[in-house]
Nucleic acid binder design. Sequence first.
DNA 1: TTAATATCGGACAAATAAGTCTGATAAATA
DNA 2: TATTTATCAGACTTATTTGTCCGATATTAA
Lengths: 145, 145
Amino acid sequence: MSIFFSRQCEYAIQSAVYIAKKQVGEWTTVKELTGHLNVPYHFSGKILQNLSRKGVLISMKGTRGGFALAKPAKEVTLFDIVDAVDGSAFHTACVMGFPKCGDGHKCSLHDQWHLLREKIYQMLVKKSLNDLARDMDKPGYQILP
Amino acid sequence: MSIFFSRQCEYAIQSAVYIAKKQVGEWTTVKELTGHLNVPYHFSGKILQNLSRKGVLISMKGTRGGFALAKPAKEVTLFDIVDAVDGSAFHTACVMGFPKCGDGHKCSLHDQWHLLREKIYQMLVKKSLNDLARDMDKPGYQILP
DNA sequence: TTAATATCGGACAAATAAGTCTGATAAATA
DNA sequence: TATTTATCAGACTTATTTGTCCGATATTAA
């Protein structure tokens, strides 16, 4: 099911994109979010709480409360979300899991994989939540209902 | 721990590389394998049995038994191993997990990711077990003890 | 034929990830 | 102030992955 990110991380990304579509100053509740996304209600709560502990989101309790981005959507990258949820171990670990693989003893895929994962990193770090939200509103890109 | 492949798949790859270093006609036992690799004994058995069910390995019971490649190491690609263990869902699923992402409704990363995963696929399908075994015997590439 | 040594099959146990529930707390509104 | 509605914290359950155990079967060698 999940390919490169954990399922929790996929949920986090989708939620962040949804929230990034909102006007500045608007709050998004878990109820609204899970009404539009295919994410379990209580699990969503956990994920958003985690993102606000990590400083990606801010939260407000009470009747008109909810979650919002801690920074402008232009300044939050996809990598920020991934890093907050899954970490960035993919940047150092051997793709085939060889324990000794490193600069001294490189595995047969080491250099190739290094290049590819750098491209993946660039893809994540260059894409802001603003980019994502904008793209997914274009015709042919619509995904969220 | 595991980055792109499941841990079981990492074990399978490492085991396949080890076996590919053997002469044609030699059998490798689970005991020998787990003596050299950092893979749990009984788990290793399961993994190799699975690979032989999938036709990647052949097996022989009894005193001089063990496992061996079903085909010459030149003809077995890394993708064959990955496909046998983890499948090839990474080829079709949306990297951010958007349920409706497809040719009609592409997500914002769709095309970029398509390119990258094709490069990953090429990396896997172009690398034979023979290549891997050869590379990992070179100085600076040594990983298996 | 017997003993030793290997895979095979299935059930089982442990660890991790995913998902749920409940009571507490804080903010807004009546 | 009381009620409503939201997040928050932690314990809990379920599902999946990882890892273990044991008895059966097949092969070799004494």
